[in-house]
Computed example of a mutant assay.
Amino acid sequence: MDIFAFPDLILQILFPGLIVLFIISQSIYFINNLLVNGVIYRSSSNEIKAAEELCDHPTIHILIPVYKEQRQILEDTVDHLAEMEYPTAQLNLYLITEQDDEVVASYIGDFIEKASGSEFEIEQLTVDRSTIRSYVQEGTWDITGEGVPRTKASALKYAFRTLGLRPEDIVTVFDADTIVPEDTFRLAIIRL
C-alpha cells in the first residue's frame, strides 16, 4: 500500500461530502431568510394597513417658495402632488412668490385658476418685503424693507408669520422642482 494513497482516498470521499454539506447548509440558510423576511414584511405591511385605517388624514400644508421658476417645473410638481397616495382634499398648497418676480408673475394667476379645478387648495402668498425685519442679534443688526435678502429662508419666515399656522399643524416645505415618492405623506402621517 502506497503511503500517499490514504490522503487521496480521503479527498475523494470527504471533499465531495463537504461540498454537498455546504450546498445543503446554504440552501437551508437561504430558505430561512426568505421565510423570516417574508413574515417580517407581511407583519409590517399589516401594521401599516391597520394604522392607515385608524388615521384620520389630517391636513398637510405644503409651502413652495417660487422665484423665477419656469411654469413647466411648477406644473410638474403640482401634478405630482395630485398623484400622491393621500386625499388631495387634505392638502393645502401655498405658492410663496416675490413682488418683483416677472417670470412667475407672467403665469401665476392663470396657473392657479387652471389648478383650482383640482381637488386640493392652491393659494398664492406674495411676500411683502416692507414688513420683514431681520435680526441676527438683538441691538446689533437690524435690516428692514428692501435690505432684507431675497432668500428662501426670508420668504418662508414671512409665510409662517402670515399664514397663522398653529404649532399642531403639519407643514412641509418643497422646492418648486421637488418630486417625492407617492407614499411619502401617507407613511409620514402614520408615523406621527
Rank of each mutant, 00 (worst) to 15 (best):
D8H: 11
N33T: 07
N37E: 12
L93I: 13
R133L: 01
A115W: 13
G109D: 15
I170P: 00
E52Y: 02
N92C: 12
R71M: 10
S45K: 09
L11H: 08
D110P: 00
A153L: 07
D101F: 11
Q90N: 15
N46R: 12
E75N: 11
D76K: 15
E85V: 04
G164I: 06
D76Y: 07
A51K: 14
V103I: 15
I10A: 13
F6D: 03
T126M: 14
L91I: 15
R191C: 07
L34P: 00
I13R: 14
E75D: 14
S116Q: 15
V173H: 01
I48K: 04
C55I: 07
D79F: 12
R166P: 00
Y94T: 13
R71S: 09
Y86T: 06
E113C: 12
W141P: 00
F111K: 07
R42N: 03
G139S: 02
D79P: 06
L156R: 05
I170L: 13
Q90S: 15
V66L: 10
Y107M: 11
S118K: 15
K114V: 12
E138S: 08
Q90F: 03
T172P: 03
P16A: 08
S43I: 02
D56Q: 13
L156E: 06
V148C: 05
E52A: 10
F15M: 10
G109P: 09
L35D: 00
V136Y: 06
I132C: 02
L163C: 11
D100T: 11
N32E: 03
D56N: 14
S43L: 07
D76C: 06
T77L: 02
T172R: 08
Y94G: 00
E69Q: 08
V39W: 08
S43N: 06
E168Q: 10
V39N: 01
A188S: 14
E121N: 13
L93N: 02
E123K: 15
P7H: 07
S116E: 14
Y41C: 04
E121L: 14
P65A: 09
N33Y: 07
I96Y: 03
I73C: 07
E138A: 06
F4P: 00
I122N: 01
F174L: 12
F160Y: 14
I48W: 01
T126F: 09
R133G: 04
D79M: 07
N92R: 11
E47H: 05
Q70G: 09
E123D: 08
Q90K: 15
V173G: 02
K68L: 06
L165M: 12
D100R: 14
D175T: 08
V127I: 10
I40Y: 04
E75V: 14
A5E: 15
L18S: 04
Q26H: 11
T178Y: 03
I64S: 05
T140M: 02
D101W: 10
S130Y: 02
V78H: 02
S118V: 05
R161Q: 11
Y41R: 11
E52L: 13
E85W: 01
T178D: 13
V78Q: 00
V171M: 08
I28P: 02
P65M: 09
I132D: 01
S106G: 14
